[in-house]
């Protein structure tokens, strides 16, 4: 029999072992590796200090990768959050029709990114794709979509926004439903316009949800991998190469472990900053309730 004092520790031990072994320790190991030069097979890891970082930032390819990641993240987050906020305000109603529309919007979120990627590659096929046919219906010129560096990154943003809107809208709807009804009743007694009500009540009350979604979206956009690996392989001409795909290529194809780890540390910084804001918000929200 386990002693009474040891009992809770015994209960959490399996989980803590998993977390430390596969999440916490690897982060430390990655930081360690980022300060070394190692090709995976050699028995020695040479300590090189920060030189992996300095050479990363002196390389044109990596600067492009960072630029792509930033552009992708900013566009995806703004478009997803903005559109889904609008849709949520509009579709926040009861009834089977609204539930169906919400379900339809949400469906891409639970489909494997493999299928999403392949489906959109097919939709974006320059010769026989549905999207170019659709553009043609409106007399618009065909787009090269993934095959041209000027449109490839935007095409990936489009897929991410399409996939993300439903999830974001439903989180917004959950947020909207937690706003007390009597606040709206008071506003309608004051004859406030719809716009004023939105600006003075809905948006401020929704701001915790809004910030949460922005943080989550930034983290998930910065670590985009699947669509790139399947749809573009970072191309054409490096135009869709982003941070995680870069780490993957340098680690697994070029065996420059230190280099890849250094790029991983940069991702760690982004995730840490976002996580910091996340927990700040979480504590404010808890406090505020």
């Amino acid at each position: 029999m386990i002693g009474k004092k040891a009992f809770p520790y015994a209960m959490i031990t399996p989980s803590m072992i998993v977390f430390c072994l596969f999440f916490i320790y690897p982060i430390g190991y990655m930081i360690y590796l980022s300060l070394h030069d190692w090709n995976f097979v050699s028995p020695v890891k040479d300590f090189v200090g920060l030189s992996n970082f300095t050479s990363l930032f002196s390389e044109q390819e990596f600067l492009e990768v960072m630029r792509n990641s930033l552009v992708y993240t900013v566009l995806t987050v703004t478009l997803t959050t903005g559109t889904s906020l609008g849709l949520a305000v509009w579709l926040n109603k009861q009834g089977i029709v609204y539930r169906f529309v919400q379900g339809a919007m949400f469906s891409p979120h639970i489909i494997s990114l493999v299928s999403i990627s392949m489906l959109w590659m097919w939709l974006m096929d320059p010769d026989y794709g549905l999207l170019n046919w659709f553009l043609g219906l409106f007399g618009l010129p065909e787009s090269p979509w993934l095959t041209d560096p000027s449109t490839s990154l935007l095409s990936l943003v489009l897929v991410a926004v399409w996939k993300g809107i439903g999830f974001n809208a439903l989180v917004f709807i959950a947020g909207l439903q937690s706003i007390p009804r009597d606040m709206y009743e008071a506003a309608s007694l004051d004859d406030a316009t719809w716009f004023r009500t939105f600006w003075k009540i809905t948006l401020p009350m929704l701001s915790p949800t809004l910030f949460f979604l922005i943080i989550i979206n930034v983290i998930s956009s910065f670590q985009v991998f699947e669509t790139i690996a399947i749809m573009t392989q970072g191309g054409p001409i490096n135009s869709t190469n982003t941070l995680v795909f870069y780490i993957y290529e340098y680690g697994f194809n070029f065996f420059k472990i230190g280099y890849a780890s250094a790029a991983g540390v940069l991702l760690l910084i982004v995730v840490s900053v976002m996580t910091f804001f996340y927990f700040r918000l979480l504590s404010v929200k808890v406090h505020y309730r």
Partner: peptide
């Protein structure tokens, strides 16, 4: 903290492990 660590961040060190 573990909740906030995505697999995309740690795959390389875990692979080596």
């Amino acid at each position: 903290i573990t909740l906030m660590i995505p697999p995309q961040l740690i795959f390389l060190p875990v692979y080596l492990q």
